[in-house]
Amino acid sequence: MHPEISRRRKLYHENQMSAGNDISAGATPTFRYCIASTPRSGSILLARMLAGTGAAGAPREYLNPLLLRAWSRLNPGRRLSLGAYMAEIESRRTSGNGSFGMKLHWRHVKNLLARNVPETVVRPLLMRQEKFIFITRRDKLRQAISYHIAESTGVFHADQQEWLKDLGAAQPPLSPERALRHLADVLEEERGWTDFFRRSGKPFLHVEYEDLISDYAETCSRIIGFLGIEAASIPDMTPRMEHGGLPERFREEVLKATGIRAEQFDAA
């Protein structure tokens, strides 16, 4: 990853956690929901759509280690307690109708547990979310390739694509082996959420990336209806092509490494 991109990412995350992005002060949610996601599944597009309604809070990855560190940089000297931190975020990011949303990859849950945050703290945080939107992607190989490219460049969001052009940064070398490891990561994260829903019985709506892209308005209407919020309109969030079409070109290389021809994979 280019050093300047690392610097810009830090600033980007600090901006996400700054008071300038708050939508409330001292609010208490009456409804909480979570976008349960895996990397490169369209969850950012979904979160921005929901935030754009003005009736679904400001869902972001508040438990992402990068955002937690950004909060700590913005609050030097303050001890990070998960319960107090989430109460503060809820007070600042709850919409006027009482809705609070967050976005969470399963690896963020695993990260908290790995940092010795007790399960007795993590599980209640999940259980207090009243509804979940579970977004996945049918084409796991394209998802894994997109994940690999994002990790290699440090560019995860569409509005960060210009960084690579600004810097004239060369594309880091891509590895079919690493892409396949990311495929295993995606499958593991998806299984983590599936197991959670099975054990917890929490209500969730399963949405797939491909449907969000191909039938945006209908899929968004279904999501808003499931959450039970009233939105005046569905924000126009037209997606951009991922990494300039590079995933499609690299896909052939990954398939070649596995010994699978593209037509065989697509037929399966």
Results as ranks from 00 to 15, higher is better:
R115I: 01
S91Y: 06
N97G: 11
L80M: 08
R142A: 14
A87D: 10
T136D: 07
S72H: 10
L113P: 01
Y62A: 08
D139E: 03
S99V: 07
V109D: 13
M49T: 10
I135P: 00
F100K: 03
S72M: 13
R69M: 08
G77C: 06
K131M: 04
P65R: 11
L141T: 09
S37T: 03
S43T: 04
T53Q: 10
G83R: 11
L74H: 15
R69G: 13
G96N: 01
P118K: 06
F132S: 03
A84W: 01
V121Q: 09
T38F: 13
G83A: 15
S37F: 02
H108R: 04
A56Q: 04
L46N: 08
R137H: 11
P118L: 06
N75L: 04
M86P: 01
M102G: 12
V121L: 07
A47P: 00
A114P: 00
G96W: 02
R123V: 03
N75E: 07
T53K: 07
N111K: 08
E61N: 07
P59N: 11
R142N: 15
T94D: 05
Y85H: 10
G101T: 01
S37R: 05
G52C: 02
L67V: 06
L113H: 11
T136V: 04
S81L: 05
F100N: 06
S37E: 09
Q143G: 08
T94S: 07
L67T: 09
A58V: 03
R138I: 05
S43L: 00
R107Y: 15
H108T: 04
F132E: 00
A87Q: 08
L74W: 13
H108S: 10
G52V: 01
T94A: 08
N97A: 11
S91W: 02
V117T: 09
S91N: 04
A55I: 00
R48C: 09
S72C: 12
M127D: 15
R78F: 09
A51T: 09
L126F: 11
N111P: 00
G96C: 01
L125F: 15
M127C: 10
N64S: 11
R73H: 14
P118V: 04
S37L: 02
E90I: 02
S41R: 05
E88H: 08
A87W: 02
T94V: 00
W71V: 04
M127F: 13
L68R: 11
R73F: 15
V109C: 12
E61A: 11
G83D: 14
S41V: 02
V117H: 11
I89A: 15
G83T: 08
P76T: 07
L74Q: 14
H105A: 12
A84S: 09
P124A: 08
S43K: 03
R78W: 06
N64D: 14
K140L: 04
L63F: 14
H108L: 02
I89W: 11
F132W: 05
R73M: 14
N116D: 15
L63K: 08
P124H: 03
V121S: 09
P59V: 04
S91H: 05
P65I: 05
G52S: 05
S43Q: 05
G54I: 01
